[in-house]
Write a protein that binds this DNA or RNA. Structure first.
Lengths: 104, 104
DNA sequence: TTTATTGGTAAGTTTTAACTAACCGTAAGT
DNA sequence: ACTTACGGTTAGTTAAAACTTACCAATAAA
């Protein structure tokens, strides 16, 4: 499975998007992420594993704490996929317009 | 729910990504989309509903056929979200670097 | 060396969503 | 008018994945 596939799978879940939102402005420890969310800390821990595997976050130990921050790599992978899709769509529209003109 | 939220939910599913891939280069009718996919046509029909609601595809009737094509609007919504996330991440990294320098 | 703090993991349950089978409606063709 | 092609919808089933509880390991503080 490619990075972008993993990333799309990961961000398909609203809770994981909420987690990523929490990390938008600053790195946070796991407990801080879980705080305020309507799920238990183990659930958050499992989500973090998925986000990490999709390269949407990076984690580094700081004593007993696991500090999480956004990883640009996953974001880039998704952007690349979307840009490619965007280009294809534009090309398809252009071709369609040309075909229309032919059949006039 | 916002457009980008719907779009992320929609593309979270591999089958829906496969469907979008099929539409990458040209519009297709429902049966043509279902052809080759390992699921039944009704399943595809339900996926198309989700994709349409997320503004990732547009559908227009042509006789008895429903012709589907990529809708740029949903793509744009996701790109916008990712760009915003990207900006935040960069700013956060910059701030972190500055804080590091202070504490030297 | 005890005692918190922090967080990862496993087992089992619950919930969600993907899927199929069956059915119906509409438009074209004969 | 009959028939075929094309697709949307519903009900019910199945499969996936999100979640909780319980437990354990590692670090830091007392």
């Amino acid at each position: 499975m490619t990075d972008s596939e993993k990333a799309f799978n990961a961000l398909g879940d609203p809770m994981r998007r909420a987690i990523l939102e929490k990390l938008r402005n600053n790195p946070l420890a796991v407990a801080d992420i879980a705080d305020g969310l309507p799920v238990t800390r183990p659930a958050v821990s499992q989500h973090l594993k998925v986000l990490k595997d999709a390269k949407l976050i990076r984690v580094h130990r700081k004593g007993t704490r696991s500090v999480c921050e956004i990883d640009p790599e996953g974001i880039i992978a998704m952007r690349f996929y979307l840009d490619s899709m965007w280009d294809s769509a534009l090309t398809a529209f252009k071709q369609f317009a040309e075909n229309q003109q032919e059949n006039e």
